[in-house]
Computed example of a mutant assay.
Amino acid sequence: MREPPAVSLVCFDLASLVIDGSIVERAFAEAIATEGIVVGTQDYVRSMVRLDRARGRPPADVLQEIFDGEEPRAQAASLAFDRSFRAAAERYGMTVPPDAVAALTKAAASGAKVCLLSGLSGAACGDLLDELCRPGIADLALCADDAPRGFPWPDLVLTAMLRLGTPDVREVAMVSATENGLLSGWRAGASIVVAIDSGGRGPQVGATHVLENVAALPDLIISGG
Rank of each mutant, 00 (worst) to 15 (best):
M1I: 12
M1H: 15
E3A: 15
P4E: 03
L9E: 04
C11E: 01
D13S: 08
L14D: 03
S16M: 05
L17N: 14
I19W: 02
S22F: 10
V24Y: 07
V24W: 04
A27G: 15
A27Q: 04
A29K: 01
I32P: 05
A33P: 07
G36V: 13
G40A: 09
T41R: 06
Q42T: 08
Y44N: 03
Y44M: 08
R46I: 02
V49E: 15
R50W: 01
D52K: 07
A54Y: 13
G56I: 15
D61P: 06
Q64I: 12
Q64Y: 04
F67D: 02
E71P: 07
A76L: 12
A77S: 10
A80I: 14
A80F: 11
R83W: 02
S84Y: 08
R86W: 03
A88K: 00
A88I: 03
A89Y: 03
R91Y: 14
G93C: 11
T95I: 06
P97E: 02
A100M: 09
K106L: 14
K106H: 12
K106I: 13
A107L: 08
A109K: 13
S110A: 14
G111V: 06
L116N: 01
L117S: 00
S118T: 14
S118V: 13
G119Q: 01
S121G: 09
A124K: 02
D130A: 09
E131H: 12
E131F: 08
L132I: 09
P135K: 12
L140C: 02
L140H: 02
C143I: 03
D146C: 10
P148Y: 00
R149Y: 12
R149D: 08
F151N: 04
F151D: 00
F151H: 03
F151M: 12
P152Y: 02
P154T: 07
L156T: 04
L158Q: 13
T159P: 10
L162I: 04
L162W: 09
R163Q: 11
G165S: 00
T166L: 04
P167L: 06
P167G: 05
P167S: 00
V169I: 13
V172M: 09
A177W: 12
A177F: 11
T178P: 11
G181F: 08
L182F: 07
L183R: 07
S184A: 15
S184C: 06
R187W: 11
G189T: 06
G189D: 02
V194N: 05
I196H: 00
D197G: 04
S198T: 11
G199P: 00
G200T: 06
G200E: 06
R201C: 07
G202D: 04
Q204G: 01
V205W: 00
V205R: 12
H209M: 08
E212N: 08
N213L: 11
N213W: 12
A215V: 13
A216R: 15
P218D: 04
D219Q: 13
I221T: 01
I222T: 13
S223D: 13
S223I: 01
G224E: 07
G225A: 14
